[in-house]
Amino acid sequence: MWRWLHPYAKPEATYRLNQKMLPWFAVPGIVVLAVATIWGLAFAPADYQQGDSYRIIFTHVPAAILSMGLYMTMATAALIALVWQIRTAEWAILAIAPVGAVFTFISLFTGAVWGQPMWGTWWVWDARLTSQLILLFLYLGVMALYAAFEDERTGAKAAGILALIGVVNIPIIHYSVYWWNTLHQQSTITKVITRFEKPSMAPEMLWPLLLNILGFALIAGTLVILRLNNQILQREVRRPWAQAILSGAIPASQAANTGAANTEERG
């Protein structure tokens, strides 16, 4: 683990890896999301019970899945930051938190919009909704705690500890629909992916949904990469390699081979 991670402890190496990965996330992300959204909204059949209003699932479910996935990613970054004291992992916490918070908000918002016609109410205090709301608060708490410290590294560590404590909320969100008799319906996707059960959803609906999840994941990756690279450049602005990229002397994509000279031992 350490051997694999160690090169990316250097902000510069992470920056270059990110720059290489960025197009592989951004381009497919936009294409997949566009295709999946049009498929889901225009071509997938209407639901026999819910009519056309079920189509909000194509935004709601991916956003909810990603809100939890991003949280776990953030918690992993926090663990790496705390155990190995790696600065890029600390910045990753801050890069992921707002993206995760936005996805959480999207899932809550679309849920409310969907709930209005289906359940007759915008909001109920059932276990799934409440735990998802707590997730939003956790994201906000991590961001607020990070920002509250004068010393940015202390803030990152404190926020990291909070992020790790908040992990207990993730299984609660996931299993809330099974543990409690909630108004929220049970997951259709998990059954298919983890238990190879026959999907209880028509394939014409399932495929665009899966494609939407992929598109959301790619877009989330793109946003995180962009934010992390901004963080890195901002923090390292006085270092020669960052100066070279910012002044446009070396195109960022080609600079990968030239940077080895000014290595910096840190972390």
Partner: peptide
């Protein structure tokens, strides 16, 4: 800040 961090974590208890 303390209230912001703690109150969400105490919601399950309240419920």
């Amino acid at each position: 800040l303390l209230s912001l961090l703690l109150l969400p974590l105490l919601i399950p208890l309240l419920i």
